[in-house]
Design a protein around this nucleic acid. Structure first.
Lengths: 211, 211
DNA sequence: TTAGCTTTGTGAAGGAATTCACAAGCCCCT
DNA sequence: AGGGGCTTGTGAATTCCTTCACAAAGCTAA
């Protein structure tokens, strides 16, 4: 398959959310134009994005809402449950562990880890925080697809090396460092400070930057 | 000034973090090559990014670490304090209110709001959660630069309209909706679900997508 | 002072993503 | 059955971003 741009995948994700909205409201079809208006993009962009994966619409009519939603879920791999561990039971890690949006979209948190003895054993939303030392043993026992890293920046590289070695497929990194991982591992960085600095730049330079 | 790409600003933010690292360790100069290696990019990219704002290096030598760091802070508007309000005192909002990284980089949280009577008045890390109804009155009294939105998706557009009307300059939106704001308002979306779906896509399609 | 090594700054080239624009297809109405 | 009105799917054009490649400059050492 042709390489799909990151930006395309992000938009597919957006489209899906709108489609689910429409689905709930019982609408049968939607046009690329309507989808575009919701997502702040253009109808050509919507059609191009979808065209990478096939042609799902009917000319003159638009897209069948439930069908397109279902196709997008397939494309995005949301048909199955992904098993997630959260490493780092601090503020952010705990908030994420309790975040309902995860489960709603098929991301099932199976474990929360920390290396701080004060946190190990604590209960967070039904999970008992596990000792990071047992990570490898646990991962050998239970399948884990995605690791969410909410550890301090200094520890992040070391931890990611461990989860990669233990066979993780994807990593979501909240630490403000650029992690080194092998090419076949999917890596996403979420960096609050960087986002804020983007806003700061815009404010300082009075540039609108609506995404 | 020429329009600066979003991606460039993100990288500047990264570079700055590395420079601060180097600064702490007392290194005097750094080359575009070293900066690039840290940031997972190329030296040409680093030089091009910087070139939009001037020429800060010395040929044959590289960049003076403290000087470049200081220039980047200026460019990113980190020389001053930005005043931030958080709207939505749920899990994520509370975690952000307590997030030290904000203050460390000059983002000063001046208020936390909610409209739920059960949350109003509660203390979060030194703040008493304010009634959202008083938003406009408060904003007229105290300068606010940035609003962080951690409200439910259904409420987000309505709330953003209010803060924009009240004179906000920038918005960081955690709700999984695409907000409509005037062109002159800077808007950043942080969307956990979208990031996860990016990973899901990568896993489902076995595509490495190191950013 | 000059030669040799290094690294910047930047036009030009190349590549990637978005937008344009239109033929092809579908539906409805008469 | 044919015409009119819409909307898709997609090559081509365009715009935006990254990479190349090299002249210009600085430093060191002899």
């Amino acid at each position: 398959m042709k390489r799909i741009a990151e930006s395309t995948v992000r938009r597919l994700s957006l489209y899906l959310r709108f489609l689910e909205d429409f689905e709930e409201r019982g609408l049968a079809t939607i046009s690329s134009d309507e989808l575009a208006a919701r997502g702040g993009t253009t109808s050509a962009q919507v059609r191009k994005d979808l065209s990478f994966f096939g042609s799902f619409g009917k000319r003159g009519l638009g897209y069948a809402v439930p069908e397109l939603a279902s196709r997008l879920r397939d494309i995005l791999g949301l048909g199955r449950e992904w098993r997630v561990i959260i490493i780092g039971a601090g503020k952010i890690g705990s908030a994420l562990a309790q975040y309902r949006g995860f489960t709603q979209r098929g991301f099932h948190v199976v474990g929360v880890y920390d290396s701080d003895p004060a946190k190990i054993g604590k209960r967070i939303d039904g999970f008992s925080v596990r000792d990071l030392a047992t990570l490898e043993r646990d991962m050998a026992r239970e399948d884990v697809d995605i690791a969410v890293l909410t550890v301090p920046a200094e520890a992040a590289q070391q931890v990611v090396t461990r989860v990669v070695k233990a066979g993780i497929g994807a990593v979501m990194n909240f630490a403000p460092v650029q992690l080194q991982v092998p090419d076949h591992i999917a890596l996403k960085n979420v960096n609050m400070a960087m986002e804020l600095e983007g806003l700061s730049f815009a404010l300082a330079n009075r540039t609108g930057l609506d995404e």
